[in-house]
Design a protein around this nucleic acid. Structure first.
Lengths: 347, 347
DNA sequence: GTTAGCACTCGACGATCAAGAGTGCTAATA
DNA sequence: TATTAGCACTCTTGATCGTCGAGTGCTAAC
């Protein structure tokens, strides 16, 4: 399974070339374009071996060979050298990033935009995840006789509003009072806990609030765990159409459909939130429609807590080294920006 | 300019057929498929006239003819008979619509989804527009020592959060007090007015609030008039790729890029909010990339006030009658749903 | 005014062919 | 024994060409 030095060198040359050209590579090309000093015949033999080992594929006889997913995996894990961005690139990104914004949503949106523009791939950014976020304030606002709006404010500044029914005998004053009590009691609790304990909060007190608290708890829960496809910001979906891999209309359609409902992407990003970086290559993707592309993700933080993640979707022959470098840099930029925006107290 | 009965009949036959098949129609087809009782030769002459008048186009000699944008315009204005949905279709839509939701955003999202699924075209829904909406509640929530979150609650339940700097000497108590004063003063005012008068609200009172009020006014203003591309919910963008008009990859890419940044769509919908229905056909679109498609919009209301709009984007040969019927029905459904959701007091 | 008839046009489709890129195998070579 | 040169073979790509069929436009007859 472990390849000798020469095979690695050849494989790397093939991958490097294929990343640039997207065209099958022949033995002669390698022999000429590298300083490896071997004739095409020798390389042909090596390539034949590499194919047998599953690292190369032949679209058809008498075409050159292209790297397999297995090859990319090896490349990412072992061969690829980690690069840093040049100061130029860094400042270019920072510049794009510098438009002042003051809402978390805007920051997320902007990040996605920058990411897709810098990489020329499709990008996605997961908004800070509610469940690991701390509650700051609960406010019930009357909007009609029997209905009120629940406003949830967290330490990341994210609010979600939902409408709940209120008992007939509950007026603005009572709502205000209840808001205050809830805020006092649940402040600084994680949304998860808050949701769990809210239902039972008042059991020892006035019974008429029971129903209300229950539905508020439900609202919270729904917000936390419900399909949060909405919290994925997608950008540059059409960038993918610029790559020859997707010059087939059916493929393009399948890909675009797959990412249009963001559920799958949400799951990927949510899972990826545990690791600083993830790389998922071609067939490693669970979705059939994503078998031809790779996904690279990175996390970002507020303060010290990883709180969300972002990713780049490109063809399997994407420039992994570059994308990883960009994601690393942007993860830091975003973390910094959010942390400043929130100015969270140190704990 | 006015065509005789027979020309109209032929034109209608051509349009009807073309809407179904997307293929150029020949004279013989018309002669056989309609009960018009004329030979192909006669029809050929009529078609020649129609082409001269600008209602038909020939992709190339010896192909059949296809309707021009002008023909569609005539069709929509004069020929087309308004249809109603069958009870079956109505109930099918209502069924899709019946999943209970309790946040305005969700309703909008769902509407877009239903609309694209029922029509098989691309759909968009503009969320209720903030500026014509009434303020219900303002809440300043402290999130760190020098920053607070402004939560704006309106009668449509929509909140927007933004972060503002607060003076050093302002603690939670003061924020709460200020929130209450602002709410008392600005409640039931349209956001526009509120934003305008907020800056000067406290001129006669404590001066240290001045800066804060000013930035809140800015925030409000920004929310109201800023690029509200975000408030457009898009659905079924890839539906368009199923039509032969977009089997050309470049066209598909251009179209998808044009709608990806929703700014253009936002403008269309915002302008369309004034009229109950609008139909924009092919070259009537201002954007070059939309010259091959048509847009049909309708408005929806909360109570009696038109508060937003929705639209369908399809190829110029879209089924206008059907789309208009669907939009009409869905506009009513949505209005009803929102009105119930908000249960706005009668005025 | 309508229609039958006919020559003409043009794109779609399939077959054929040459060129070119690349392989795999064999035999010669260092 | 590892490498290389040589060569036959395979397969795609692009160009060319002829055929087919749909459809038109025109003319002359009804």
């Amino acid at each position: 399974m472990d390849l000798d030095e020469r095979k690695l060198q050849i494989l790397q040359a093939i991958i490097d070339d294929y990343i640039l050209t997207a065209a099958p590579i022949g033995s002669r090309t390698i022999s000429k374009r590298t300083d490896i000093g071997l004739s095409s015949a020798t390389i042909r033999n090596e390539m034949s071996d590499l194919e047998e080992l599953g690292f190369l594929e032949q679209p058809h006889t008498s075409a050159g060979r292209i790297p397999s997913d297995k090859a990319y995996r090896l490349y990412v894990n072992n061969i690829m050298k980690k690069t840093k961005l040049t100061p130029d690139e860094c400042s270019a990104i920072s510049k794009l990033f510098s438009r002042r914004v003051d809402a978390v949503e805007d920051v997320i949106r902007q990040t996605a935009w920058v990411l897709s523009n810098v990489t020329h791939y499709t990008s996605m950014v997961l908004a800070p995840q509610l469940k690991s976020v701390k509650l700051k304030h609960i406010q019930l606002v009357p909007i009609s006789e029997r209905k009120a709006l629940v406003v949830i404010v967290t330490n990341t500044g994210i609010t979600r509003d939902s409408i709940v029914h209120i008992p007939a005998d509950m007026d603005a004053y009572h709502l205000e009072r209840l808001s205050r009590m809830l805020t006092a009691h649940f402040a600084n609790m994680r949304l998860e806990e808050a949701s769990r304990s809210m239902e039972h909060f008042f059991s020892e007190e006035v019974n008429s609030y029971r129903g209300l608290l229950k539905s508020m708890s439900e609202v919270l829960n729904q917000r936390i765990s419900g399909s949060q496809a909405r919290s994925v910001e997608l950008s540059g979906a059409t960038n993918m159409l610029n790559y020859p891999e997707y010059s087939d209309l059916d493929k393009a359609r399948a890909f675009l459909s797959a990412i249009e409902t963001k559920d799958y992407l949400f799951n990927m990003l949510a899972n990826a939130s545990k690791l600083e970086f993830t790389v998922t290559i071609g067939s490693e993707n669970e979705s059939m429609d994503m078998k031809d592309c790779s996904v690279v993700t990175a996390t970002y933080k507020i303060g010290e807590d990883p709180i969300g993640s972002m990713g780049v979707i490109g063809p399997t022959r994407m420039n992994y080294a570059k994308v990883l470098a960009i994601l690393g840099f942007m993860g830091n930029s975003l973390s910094e920006m959010l942390t400043n925006l929130i100015e969270e107290e140190k704990r």
